[in-house]
Amino acid sequence: MRKSLIVTIFLSLILSCSKSDRGELIGVKSNKFFSDKPQGMVLIPSGSFTMGPSNPSAVLDQNPTLKTVSVKAFYMDETEITNSEYRQFVNWVRDSIVRTELAVASYYKIGEEISEDDPMWEFMPLYNRVGDGEEKTAYQEYLEENGLGILDIENKSTYKLNWDIKIPWERSEYLDANYAAVLEGGIGPDLLEDYEGFFIPADSTPNALRAFKTKRI
């Protein structure tokens, strides 16, 4: 009995030492992940091409520079998009871009003071601030004690945008002259800079309608 036990232990040691991982930590094996093809798009495979003139002129280019360029695989729309589809895309992304510029303009106009009566107050960047009559929470006090949660208007990671307020797009609904300066371009009475604006005037568009500047996207 004792001899059988010794043989069993010996065989177990031999088998354990013969594993391919040799006791190393190799992690859990898993299947490869392949993302689904985006709807309406086709995969353009990776490849290489030679960049430079294929038939250089002996007079104009004595020493043509040729090099091989590799391009990674990427997806491309299967068909051209319509003006309506592109307009839908612009309307999806313009909101965050305009909202960000309004937040920065509001901050420089109002500062860190509580000024809820200001027309642009609702667009102020959201961070560790306390309103009138509100008491600081334990977490807010913790942030202040450790120098955290402090707003840096040049660093978008230190604040959030207020998505609860609707952006007035029509000129008749503009909040004040400062708001108009941010959207239309120019200088506002209480703003510190000359803004580029987000709209092309109606007299500069083919259909005589005011249009969003897609180059701002």
Rank of each mutant, 00 (worst) to 15 (best):
N91Q: 15
V42D: 15
D36N: 08
N207Y: 15
F212S: 02
P201E: 01
I9H: 02
G147F: 07
R210G: 00
K136Q: 11
M41S: 09
N91R: 11
T65C: 06
S18H: 09
M41Y: 12
D61M: 00
V28F: 13
S48V: 04
Y142Q: 04
S16L: 11
T50V: 10
S57I: 06
S70T: 13
S48H: 01
G27E: 12
V90E: 10
L13M: 00
S46P: 11
I200V: 15
Y179D: 05
K166Y: 05
K19N: 13
Y108A: 10
W92K: 10
I26N: 13
P206V: 05
I187L: 14
L209R: 11
E85M: 07
T82L: 01
Y159Q: 09
E144C: 01
L43P: 02
S115Q: 14
V7R: 05
A103M: 03
D132C: 01
G149A: 12
L5I: 15
K166F: 06
G27V: 07
I110C: 12
R171M: 03
L5Q: 04
V71E: 07
K160M: 00
G186E: 05
V90N: 08
L161D: 00
A58P: 12
M120P: 05
K29W: 08
I114D: 00
K156N: 13
W121A: 15
F49K: 04
F34K: 12
S157I: 15
S84D: 10
T65N: 08
G147D: 12
A177Y: 14
G23W: 11
A103V: 01
L66D: 02
A202C: 07
N146W: 08
T8S: 04
S115T: 06
K67S: 07
I44S: 14
M120E: 10
Q39F: 05
K160L: 07
P119C: 10
I165A: 15
L25C: 07
Q62S: 14
A202N: 06
Y174W: 12
L151Y: 06
V42A: 07
S16N: 14
N91W: 06
S20A: 02
L183V: 02
T137I: 03
G149W: 10
F33G: 02
M120V: 00
F33K: 15
L60W: 14
G111M: 00
V93S: 06
V59R: 09
E113W: 06
I153T: 13
I187D: 12
P64F: 00
E80G: 07
F34G: 04
E144A: 08
G133R: 09
W163C: 04
K136V: 03
Y174T: 02
I217Y: 10
N83V: 03
L15Y: 13
S46M: 01
P64I: 07
L102E: 04
P38N: 02
K156W: 12
M51T: 05
